[in-house]
């Protein structure tokens, strides 16, 4: 459980980091908190020949520009809890943050790291898909802006090219007040979710004007609930309607089946948690 040999480089600027990553191509990896990469290296499941340490780069800002909230790739998870703009505009994001790992992981782990690692059951990729985030990636060739829906390609596979790294995540600030929630089920607190569901609602009283629902842990990437979202529009949200939305969502996904959880159980959880998350989002209105 010791990593294979690698060279360590500490980048002093984004330009230097990008130029190092360009030089190393597939053999280089940026490292920030190392919460996923270091264990994988110790197990020799990842064997980068070069690590580019980006911890000293100025990528840790949270700022609003017009209708966009931009979070730097180096924002550590524990900061989500103290950010009024997240609390005000992205309650589902805030709710999800409570489910991320343990305090140590939240202190060291970074937004860019979690997104780039793309674990199928992680909270933040799901939140990005839920909020229609844009992933900002840079390389020596310039900047690419990738919609979250196109960023996550498969388990641990993203749209990032060799030499490219995530520098920020942009969340569109909604025009109207939104209500949101995130609930997950895991064997133990802090484990990766068996199923996690995030929901965002725009409401007029109890009537749904707009809904977005996303799920972590069901498939190899986070999935949105197009049919359930459509179904909810214009409906009064009741327990029964929420259950029905859950059923619609569950029918539209093809959950993985592994030694820990059956596909059948995951499908069942999607129904239950979708319903609960919708009701929790609505109740957060009060």
């Amino acid at each position: 459980m010791r990593p294979a040999a690698f060279e360590y480089h500490r980048a002093a600027s984004i330009e230097e980091a990008l130029s190092l990553l360009a030089e190393f191509g597939e053999d280089g990896r940026p490292i920030a908190g190392g919460q996923s990469l270091v264990p994988m290296m110790n197990l020799r499941l990842a064997r980068p020949e070069h690590l580019v340490d980006i911890n000293s780069l100025e990528l840790d800002k949270i700022e609003r520009t017009g209708d966009t909230l931009s979070l730097g790739a180096l924002v550590r998870h524990e900061r989500y809890f103290n950010e009024p703009l997240i609390a005000e505009h992205f309650p589902a994001f805030l709710d999800a943050a409570h489910w991320i790992g343990h305090p140590t992981i939240r202190r060291h782990g970074s937004l860019g790291g979690s997104i780039s690692h793309a674990d199928p059951s992680a909270e933040l990729p799901c939140v990005c898909v839920l909020h229609d985030a844009t992933i900002v990636a840079r390389s020596v060739n310039g900047e690419r802006r990738i919609p979250a829906s196109e960023f996550f390609i498969s388990a641990y596979v993203t749209a990032l090219e060799p030499g490219e790294m995530v520098v920020a995540v942009e969340l569109p600030i909604p025009q109207r007040k939104q209500h949101g929630a995130f609930i997950e089920i895991a064997e133990r607190m802090g484990d990766f979710a068996v199923i996690g569901i995030g929901a965002v609602l725009e409401l007029d009283g109890d009537t749904v004007l707009d809904a977005r629902i996303a799920c972590a842990g069901a498939e190899l990437t986070p999935v949105r609930a197009a049919s359930a979202e459509q179904f909810l529009k214009g409906r009064q949200l009741t327990e029964e309607v929420a259950q029905e939305a859950g059923q619609l969502f569950a029918q539209s996904v093809d959950p993985v089946n592994d030694y820990r959880s059956s596909a059948e159980y995951r499908r069942h959880l999607i129904v239950q948690l979708t319903s609960r998350t919708l009701m929790r989002a609505m109740k957060s209105k009060a």
């Binding site: 264990p39 607190m189 802090g190």
Partner: peptide
């Protein structure tokens, strides 16, 4: 929680603390 799982070829599947789950404080 704790379960040392092998597949049909007797390959162990729970080979790290991410898979071999022990009770934690919560």
């Amino acid at each position: 929680f704790e379960h040392m799982i092998y597949d049909e070829q007797c390959q162990p599947l729970t080979t790290s603390f991410a898979d071999y789950l022990m009770p934690l404080a919560p």
